[in-house]
Design a protein around this nucleic acid. Sequence first.
DNA 1: GCACGTTTTCAGTATTGCCTGAAGTCAATG
DNA 2: CATTGACTTCAGGCAATACTGAAAACGTGC
Lengths: 152, 152
Amino acid sequence: MDDAQHQYVDKVATFFTLFGSARAWAEILGWLMICEPAERTQAEIAEDLGLSAGTVSTQLRAHVQLGMVEQVRVRGDRTQRYRLRPGAWYAVMASELERIRALGDLARAGDGVLPRDRPERVTELGDLADFFAREWPPLMERMTAELEKGSA
Amino acid sequence: MDDAQHQYVDKVATFFTLFGSARAWAEILGWLMICEPAERTQAEIAEDLGLSAGTVSTQLRAHVQLGMVEQVRVRGDRTQRYRLRPGAWYAVMASELERIRALGDLARAGDGVLPRDRPERVTELGDLADFFAREWPPLMERMTAELEKGSA
DNA sequence: GCACGTTTTCAGTATTGCCTGAAGTCAATG
DNA sequence: CATTGACTTCAGGCAATACTGAAAACGTGC
């Protein structure tokens, strides 16, 4: 890992740390975006970034569960390899629909305590969630179309 | 604050805490959604939620800076009052455009270290940000139209 | 089924960031 | 100009979380 690479990993790490991510999680993400080859073992990542094996194991699993990273098996090699999943960023955006729905549920859970004074404080959130729940699927379709075009 | 209200505040707090918000920040938000009257002083909020004056001051300021909460001056009363801003949720969504742009910048900052192996690991993020930067404004317009309709 | 490297787990440690309480600042009022 | 109350700031305590290191578990290839 040269200086420029190190700097970029740091930039990515700083960015996501601002939104509450763990430093190691973000560093792994940044590194998997630019490392060569794209496929790497846990031991390599630990060595490259100066992290312990335990940390890499834990944070890598988090990435896999989020759908950002996937495992690659190489025949004849017992070592697992990991790489940034193609379309990883798109997948994250697509999964946003679940969070939108959760927000809507949160608003509806407020029905029992709707304030007489300016009840729209609660209903507004529900309306917003409904709006996005409606708009998101077609938006994701346009996004996918864009993706196809770019990779074609 | 009755039991049902307390329960709702807790639900809101739990939700946002999952995404890394400070507990006090989230409790204040939940309470400002349902309290009556909608306008409240710092001292009242502290009393209602069992928080210290310092915490309320700090977290309330965070809400104001994010545009979720606004201050209301009452003539002849030296005490400042705070309330959830009408259209607060919409404003937050509208400001999302800035974060989209920041993501795009992060991707473009990777140009200097573009991997020869699967460079789309970096460019994909940039394309995604560009897509959303394009789609967001018209989406926000549709959202605003919806808002007018609902409040009319 | 054995042996070996890989991966996971977990107890302990370090670090981070929240919250409190008290002291300080400011503004309005008489 | 002094007094009063509201608000802010900040050092310190504390709780939550991330990270490490080592040991246990796993699973692959022989």
